[in-house]
Lab assay of single mutants.
Amino acid sequence: GTEIELESKNGQREHYTATSEDEARKIIEKAVRRGIKRIELRGASEQLIRDMQEIAKQIGLQYRTDGSL
């Protein structure tokens, strides 16, 4: 699965493990709508990382991946 670590603007951290790319995408989209400061992805697919970079650029988000592409 993909591990997703979120940090909201007030510094609250949340951790999710998505079993599918679809689920990961839903978690990320929800977080973005809620207003999130930072997202870290571990074990994400190349496609998901590309999507994440696109989203991050659009809304000026900090993100990090573990680089295991």
Rank of each mutant, 00 (worst) to 15 (best):
G1K: 14
G1S: 12
G1I: 15
T2F: 13
T2S: 03
E3T: 09
E3Y: 15
E3R: 11
E3M: 08
L6W: 13
L6Q: 01
L6E: 01
L6D: 01
E7L: 15
E7V: 13
E7K: 05
K9R: 11
N10E: 11
N10A: 11
N10K: 05
N10V: 04
G11A: 04
G11L: 02
G11M: 02
Q12S: 10
R13Y: 10
E14L: 07
E14R: 06
E14Q: 08
E14T: 09
H15A: 06
H15D: 02
H15V: 14
H15W: 11
Y16C: 08
Y16R: 03
Y16K: 02
T17E: 07
A18E: 04
A18P: 10
T19R: 14
T19K: 11
T19F: 11
E21F: 05
E21P: 05
E21S: 06
E23A: 07
E23P: 00
A24N: 00
A24L: 06
R25D: 00
K26M: 12
K26G: 09
I27R: 01
I27W: 07
I27K: 01
I27T: 01
I28A: 02
I28W: 02
I28D: 00
E29R: 08
K30A: 14
K30W: 12
A31Q: 03
A31R: 02
A31H: 05
V32R: 02
R33T: 08
R33G: 10
R33P: 02
R34F: 05
R34E: 11
G35E: 05
G35T: 02
I36C: 10
K37G: 04
R38S: 09
R38G: 05
E40C: 15
E40M: 13
L41Y: 02
L41W: 02
L41E: 01
L41C: 03
R42Q: 08
G43K: 04
A44C: 07
A44S: 03
A44E: 01
S45A: 02
S45V: 02
E46W: 07
E46N: 09
E46A: 12
Q47M: 05
Q47Y: 05
Q47D: 09
Q47N: 11
L48T: 05
L48C: 04
I49Y: 10
I49R: 07
I49Q: 10
I49S: 06
D51S: 07
D51N: 05
D51E: 11
D51F: 15
M52P: 00
M52A: 07
M52V: 15
M52S: 02
E54T: 10
E54S: 09
I55M: 10
I55V: 05
I55C: 11
I55S: 01
A56R: 04
A56I: 09
A56K: 04
K57I: 11
Q58F: 09
Q58I: 13
G60D: 11
G60Y: 05
G60H: 06
G60W: 07
L61I: 09
L61A: 08
Q62N: 06
Q62F: 10
T65R: 03
T65F: 06
T65D: 15
D66Y: 02
D66R: 01
D66V: 06
G67T: 08
S68P: 07
S68G: 08
S68F: 05
L69P: 11
L69F: 15
L69H: 07
L69S: 11
